[in-house]
Write a protein that binds this DNA or RNA. Structure first.
Lengths: 151, 151
DNA sequence: ATCTAAATGCGAATTACTTGCAACTAATTT
DNA sequence: AAATTAGTTGCAAGTAATTCGCATTTAGAT
């Protein structure tokens, strides 16, 4: 129950009502360490939650910065919780495998970027992702087209 | 004609036939300095090119690394030429304004990232984008929801 | 000039996501 | 604790972006 109450608090602090669907969606995020898609969330939910609710919830959580989109180079959006330790990913262009990159260098350059900018007042977010081939795909198809399965 | 021949060469070197549609698509990329969407390309083309051709061409140019996707946080894909000077972007969460970030720090850390990785053999690409508020949007809506127009 | 794999155009299909609206419910007010 | 109300949901239909199947065409090799 402790956890559920934390989520309730997180939701209220972000200006939302703490409804069962939203708590369930956040629980799915807590459970999955990799970025997940709307469909993956829908599949893991107790099946009485409508997809429109999931999409609406994702959109508004994104708007408030509770979750952030991660571009896995698939054809649909993936998200992960924003309030976890700043990190990035390496994503395999062959099979979609994801590995975390634990260090974040971006903070160190963000101020420079902002000051060098002519038109910007503020930087709120950033993405840094690496794309390559995992060891197993590097053997299979050394030229790296995407041919393994991806979700 | 020089330019067109360069594009022909680029296409053939990448393993494609140099068809008029593909040359036209690459010319649109050369003309636009910001990342562009499939629809923007379709609008700028002489109107006899089918959208399926544009989408297919984008997909295969992306596969070969001739163009790369840039996530502008809109609801559809944007691309830019990959073989230009390495750079990144700051994107306004309010109005979608894009400014180039001319220095790239990523090369300096890429080797470290690869060596720290357990499962990866190779890094081929990366994305680094900053999201924030431009000076004009920072005045209009200091809490930064997206409400200006975006394309 | 001929040949063939690759590319195109067309329409239909699919995927990912959104919207309108009536019913419902969390949290505030009394 | 009941009443209130603004935010939220489910459903079904809708839209935007992208893809597919297939007959036809074309670039570039022979």
């Amino acid at each position: 129950m402790q956890k559920k109450d934390d989520l309730r608090t997180l939701l209220r602090k972000s200006g939302y009502k703490a409804t069962p669907s939203r708590i369930a969606i956040l629980e799915v995020f807590k459970k999955n360490k990799n970025p997940i898609s709307a469909q993956e969330i829908i599949n893991e939910l107790p099946s009485d939650t409508d997809q429109a609710t999931v999409y609406r919830t994702l959109k508004s959580l994104k708007g408030k910065g509770v979750i952030k989109p991660i571009d896995l180079r698939h054809n649909h959006a993936h998200y992960e919780l924003a309030n976890i330790v700043e990190h990035h990913h390496i994503i395999c262009l062959g099979c979609g495998k994801i590995e975390d990159v634990h260090h974040c260098w971006v903070k160190e350059v963000q101020d420079t970027v902002l000051h060098d900018s002519k038109h910007f007042a503020e930087i709120r977010q950033h993405t840094l992702e690496f794309y390559g081939l995992c060891k197993s795909c590097a053997k299979k198809h050394p030229d790296g087209g995407r041919s393994c399965s991806t979700s």
